[in-house]
Write a protein that binds this DNA or RNA. Structure first.
Lengths: 203, 203
DNA sequence: GCGGCTCTTGACCGATCAGTCAAGTGCAGT
DNA sequence: ACTGCACTTGACTGATCGGTCAAGAGCCGC
């Protein structure tokens, strides 16, 4: 859909997306009907189809905005930071902060990944984020700070820890984002094992 | 549903669950209708409702069996292994192996987590797995092998890395499960950073 | 071959769904 | 005050949904 919107129109569109986001996250995408969305706003059904060609399009639009917003937050967090390891840490912190404030969008992203027709739209966004993280890893490897493992794999490991901890500790247990972020950073950078003192050999 | 099933009945039930699993994973839970499932098997609709009281019940049944099966694989992998760190590593390897062979079930679990009415059934199973992992972490902390961080957090970090790497490297890129598992173990145990030689201080 | 159980059939039900559209309202520019 | 476009209304459509049920088929012990 591509329409010339007046300020009033833009506000309606925003309302529709905001309300739909909430209902999709609470109830699921499919169980939430268009009728329910327009009723929730107290408007007629035609309003919905004035702004979106279909329910699917609305959902894709929500996903797109979410990804743009997260990416903006990440980019801002890396401003002025040059050290690759600290860039990774800052990226994790930014992601955790954003995640804490957008519980609903996290759920929608997770759902989108399970439905073949939404997955492609998601894939593109994730690839960019992973490529970014992988670049920092590569820089860290080059500067001798990070172990020489597959950067792509490490990037996904970072993503995995971050999203899992966000899901459980932020959204289920409502713990402070910065503490969870710090924990994620520590675990990822240093691992679980207590370092063996150099020269200590099992005998 | 609880019925006395003959061998023939058990086979039908198995067929229904297998076919539904495939369709749910390919198409999504909601977009797959009961009509489609029974058509896929070439039977009447009544067959479905002879074995399951509802579509939801079928889905929960699939989830339950999947969790039991994964848990069995994990338990078997830990047999005879006492060292907590090696138990963690073996658990990761078992999970990765199972995940590689049950792509479809992974997707269903991921979907179930996004729908409020299925999440509780999932939660119980995950809690058990996490509690198990956390116990090994605690043992490792006690024996001085693992850093003294929150065992629950570490357990979720392990889970996060494992599921993310499984999703991307096994299901999207079809890489060998044992290689991915080894990479996951390495990253988790040792972290990203190159260890600083003792005595080296930034100045 | 008979009775009784498991299993199967498929027409049918009411509800609900995404999406359409002819008609009308509100508002901005002139 | 008139014109034209942005926006809104809500009844309507055809399809599909999950679930029911009366009737009957296959099968097993006797």
């Amino acid at each position: 859909m591509d329409r010339r919107l007046t300020p009033r129109g833009r506000e309606r569109r925003r309302q529709l997306m905001a309300f739909a986001t909430r209902r999709f996250a609470e109830n699921g995408y499919h169980p939430t009907s268009v009728a329910e969305i327009v009723q929730g706003l107290g408007v007629g059904k035609g309003v919905f189809y004035w702004y979106f060609t279909s329910k699917d399009e609305l959902f894709l639009e929500i996903l797109k905005e979410a990804q743009q917003d997260l990416r903006r937050a990440q980019r801002q967090a890396l401003e002025g930071e040059q050290d690759p390891v600290r860039r990774i840490a800052q990226g994790i912190r930014a992601t955790m902060g954003w995640s804490a404030e957008h519980h609903e969008l996290n759920k929608l992203v997770q759902f989108a990944a399970t439905e073949e027709r939404f997955a492609p739209a998601l894939r593109r966004g994730q690839e960019v984020a992973v490529r970014d993280a992988a670049r920092h890893v590569r820089d860290g490897v080059a500067s001798g700070q990070i172990k020489d493992l597959d950067p792509d794999l490490l990037a996904h490991a970072i993503l995995g820890v971050t999203t899992q901890l966000a899901r459980v500790f932020l959204h289920e247990r409502h713990q402070p984002a910065d503490e969870v972020a710090d924990a994620a950073v520590t675990v990822l950078l240093e691992g679980l094992l207590v370092p063996e003192p150099a020269g200590t050999v099992a005998r």
